[in-house]
């Protein structure tokens, strides 16, 4: 069951887009999970544990992001990511 990736979609609510502080929160969260957590936007994929990759997504407010988690705690990890990204 853990092999099947958990997929979610979320609209980025932060008015400043995916900038340093939401990225920082997301990376911290991702580090607490064993699951591999990928965020993709506009054809680019970022590992949620990589600050640089997340920055390079260049996602602005209102962007629709795909969240994909694989691993033992995939479900929890994906939910946490969605929660953080939908925080204004």
């Amino acid at each position: 069951m853990s092999d099947e990736p958990v997929r979610r979609q979320v609209t980025l609510a932060n008015p400043n887009g995916l900038h340093l502080s939401p990225i920082s929160a997301l990376v911290k969260e991702a580090m607490n999970h064993e699951a591999e957590l990928l965020i993709s936007f506009d054809g680019n994929i970022a590992n949620a544990k990589s600050t640089m990759e997340l920055m390079l997504l260049g996602a602005t407010c209102g962007a629709v992001l795909s969240v994909e988690a694989t691993g033992v705690d995939a479900e929890v990890a994906a939910e946490a990511a969605v929660r953080l990204l939908s925080e204004p």
Binding site: L20, I23, S24, N47, K49, S50, T51, M52
Partner: peptide, 16 residues
């Protein structure tokens, strides 16, 4: 201080 924790994450960035 939060800015430094972001910098720390950058330095520890697994991809980099």
């Amino acid at each position: 201080a939060a800015i430094f924790s972001a910098h720390l994450q950058m330095a520890r960035d697994p991809r980099m």
